[in-house]
Design a protein around this nucleic acid. Structure first.
Lengths: 108, 108
DNA sequence: CTTTTGCGCAACCAGGTATTTGCACATATA
DNA sequence: TATATGTGCAAATACCTGGTTGCGCAAAAG
């Protein structure tokens, strides 16, 4: 599996999205994360591997424990992609605004 | 494949993201969309089916042609999910701002 | 009416995915 | 040192995905 990891693919899985939201607030170990889900630690470990590969997550070693935390900056990549569409829906909102303004004028 | 379609899964595929960006500007037929990619019309049709299933795309029938256009409102769902993280990185930015302000004060 | 064009659908296939189970290794703890 | 704990990795497996090919059907064109 030498597939280049992609952030959009990373957030496609619902479990992975839940993990992301979970470790956004505080760093957690794989065992601690697994306790929040109905799945094995190994499965969580695999998800963390994928998240690490696309640099969405960073590890911090503490003895034999490994704390995983979200690399929040990476999330901006998604935000950046959404921006082009935000521009569109804001433009449409403004257009609606203009329509309303015109109606008001005509009422006058 | 009675899988409930998910918007995050829909945007996971790079071709699908490209289609989304393409039809965000103007409605296009499957053939017209396929011309933009190195793939068959049928493959595009499959992507459109997935996009339609999760209501990211709407169809408009015009004779034997079908125009597909982005349902831009649906994109806000992604934006909504990102928002929780935006809050976090904005908070951190403000914290950095405070640090800088404190440094400035001390310089005085 | 016959042919062309635009389309969706079903079958098929190679490759990817998520999960479980079993293992090896390192670090704590007794 | 012996045992328990935390972890990643590998193999097996059932399922999902994206793509192609071939088909049938409806609308336009001849």
């Amino acid at each position: 599996m030498e597939t280049r990891r992609d952030i959009f693919q990373a957030i496609a899985d619902p479990t992975r999205r839940a993990i992301i939201a979970l470790i956004a607030l505080q760093a957690l170990t794989p065992n601690a994360i697994a306790e929040h889900f109905d799945t094995t630690r190994q499965a969580v470990s695999k998800h963390l591997r994928i998240l690490t590969e696309c640099e969405l997550v960073k590890q911090e070693y503490k003895g034999r424990e490994i704390y995983y935390q979200l690399e929040i900056e990476k999330m901006k990549e998604i935000d950046k992609w959404i921006e082009q569409f935000r521009k569109i829906w804001e433009t449409r909102f403004n257009q609606l605004d203009n329509v309303l303004a015109t109606m008001k004028k005509q009422k006058k």
